[in-house]
Structures are given as C-alpha cells and as structure tokens.
C-alpha cells in the first residue's frame, strides 16, 4: 500500500464493508431507537424538501413530486411572479419588516436587560422580569385578537382614551401607515422579556470586581452601563445577532395573516403571505412554491452579505 497523505484517507480505506458491518451490529440498539425520529424527519422534512421541485413544474394536484407525467417548465413561475406588478411591494415589505425586527425589536431586549440589571431591589427586579416574560406564553391568535379589540374604532379603549383627551380617532388596524408600528409594537410587547433572558444571564456572569474598581475610580452608574456592562455582554449580543441574521427575510407570517386586511396590503403584504394566498386559497401550488423558494434565495443572499458585514466589524462571524 502507498503511503497515505492524510489521516482521513487512511481511515476511509481501512473502513471497509467488514468494519461497517461490525459497527452496525454494535450500534443496532441505537438505530432501533432512531427509527421513529428518523422516520419523522424523512416523512415530514425531507419529503417536502424534495417537493420543492414542483416550483419548476406544471404541478397537477394529486400527482407525485416526480413521475412519468411531470411537465418541466424551467423558470416559468419565477418569471410570472417577477412580472407581477406588486412584486416590488412584496420584497420591500418583507425587507422592511425583518430589518425593523433587527434594528428595533432586537435592541429593545438588550436595553431591557440593561434596565433590569440596574434595578437595585432584588424582589422588584424579579417581579419585573417575571411580568415581562408573561406575554411570551400568550398565543399569536390571542395577541392579535387583543390588538384588534383594544385598538378597534368602535369601542376600543385606546380610541376611547384618545377621544376623551380631545383627539381624533385613529383606525390603527385598518390603516396601512400604522401596520408596521402595530406589528413591531406587538412583537416587542410579546417577546422583549423573553429575549432579554439570554442577556440577563450574560450580565449575571460579569465579574463584580470590575464594578468595584470603577466605583473606586469614581465612575457613575450611567458610565458603568456603557463602559462595563455593555462591552462585557458584547460577545453574547453578537452571537444572538448572528442567530437573528439566519432568519432574516423570514417574518412571522402567522401573525401577519391574522393582522392584515386588503386595506393594509400596501405595507403588510409580504412574500410569505402572498405565497400562502396563492397556494392555499388559489391552489396554484407551483407558483406558491416558486415564491417561497425565491424568498429563501433572498434569505441566503442576505445572510452572506450580513456575514461579510459582521466579519468586518467584529471577530465573530458565522463562517
């Protein structure tokens, strides 16, 4: 046998059929345990992945993803979708909503964690933290329902208050210019406390001697926030930021579908909600799949871009 250049090659040549046969027998109980989980992933995850192929077909309802009757149409559906007059609107709305998520909702949870840390009374801090976590456990349907009723034009308490203060009623839920505020606002209300947990934990791990040294040097608490707390949790912030980047362009369409109406499509209609309407309501399966594939494609592009950006400003990055 020739000398192997690297370890990997050597391993591969040694591990022949006999080796794998022995290993398979040894790990039989493990495989037995994995039967159900693997069946789940194959049936409900990998099979649909294979189904993405219908974005390039004239898919007929009831036929298999790939069979004798499959008609391939190349990029027909993508062209059709991109020549849609509202194409720009879907992309713009998707981008703006996910950017707002990163630039408003995300910093809000960091600021809240910093705020919690500065509360001196332990009991009050715990109380505030626990109350802020509560909305996370309320369902999207209920949250949108509460928004619809509280901000309603006929009898909603917010408009009642506005009228009592002498203002004009605002149709919060039916007005395209208010949609983004309502979307981001409810997101912060629901998730700020929950997203802050990670940062609170990071703050708890900061060496207290840093603060003692700063106090001796006459630093104020306001300065401590920016010169000690924030720099110390920066790694956590960057990791969470990178995890967020992974889901850029994926807005919570489950919430938008409940919130929007044709009156707010101007700002509320995103790629995924459009794909939902085309697919489920109009049953144009191929077109709908092409739209969500386009969405994922933009997602990948943005991840690459954001990763470059992060690498330029910090040492941590996705790859």
């Amino acid at each position: 046998m020739k000398k192997r250049s690297n370890e990997k090659n050597r391993l591969q040549s040694v591990h022949g059929l006999a080796f794998h046969g022995r290993m398979m027998r040894k790990s039989a109980p493990y495989w037995l345990m994995l039967v159900i989980p693997l069946a789940f992933f194959i049936l409900f995850k990998y099979w649909p992945m294979f189904g993405i192929l219908i974005a390039f077909q004239n898919y007929k309802i009831g036929s298999p993803f790939w069979g004798a009757g499959t008609k391939w149409v190349q990029l027909k559906w993508f062209v059709k979708f991109m020549s849609n007059p509202y194409f720009g609107r879907y992309v713009r709305n998707t981008l703006i909503l996910s950017l707002r998520d990163m630039l408003i909702t995300f910093p809000a949870s960091i600021i809240f964690a910093l705020l919690l840390n500065e509360i001196r009374s332990r009991r009050f801090r715990k109380l505030t933290a626990n109350i802020s976590l509560l909305p996370h456990f309320i369902s999207t349907v209920v949250i949108v329902s509460m928004m619809m009723t509280l901000f309603s034009v006929d009898g909603g308490v917010i408009n009642t208050l506005i009228r009592k203060l002498g203002g004009n009623e605002i149709n919060f839920m039916g007005n395209a210019s208010w949609f983004r505020t309502m979307y981001t606002g409810s997101d912060i209300w629901q998730n700020m406390g929950f997203s802050a947990v990670v940062f609170t934990a990071a703050i708890a791990g900061i060496d207290p001697t840093l603060y003692e040294a700063a106090a001796i040097d006459g630093s104020t608490r306001w300065k401590n926030v920016f010169r000690i707390t924030l720099p110390c949790i920066l790694p956590t912030i960057i990791i969470m930021w990178l995890l967020k980047i992974g889901s850029v362009m994926t807005v919570s369409y489950e919430k938008i579908i409940l919130m929007y109406s044709p009156a707010t499509f101007e700002t509320a209609d995103v790629l995924s909600t459009y794909s939902y309407r085309v697919g489920i309501n109009e049953q144009q399966y191929s077109l709908s799949t092409a739209i969500s594939l386009f969405n994922s494609f933009c997602n990948v592009l943005l991840i690459v871009f954001a990763n470059k950006l992060t690498r330029r400003v910090s040492e941590t990055s996705l790859w």
């Binding site: 989980p37 649909p48 294979f50 189904g51 219908i54 995924s272 794909s275």
Partner: peptide, 25 residues
C-alpha cells in the same frame, strides 16, 4: 445522523410541499 437532522434546521420544503405531503401523500 446529527448532520442528517441538522440539515432540517437550515432547509425546509416550505408550506405547500409540506401541505401536499401531509394531506395528499
């Protein structure tokens, strides 16, 4: 096996293919 499972964290079939698999197949 870990890699096989991890793949589903980053890629998914999306709404319609999943819908077809669950309801039709």
């Amino acid at each position: 096996v870990t890699r096989f499972i991890m793949v589903t964290m980053f890629f998914s079939g999306g709404m319609i293919p999943t819908f077809i698999v669950v309801t039709r197949f």
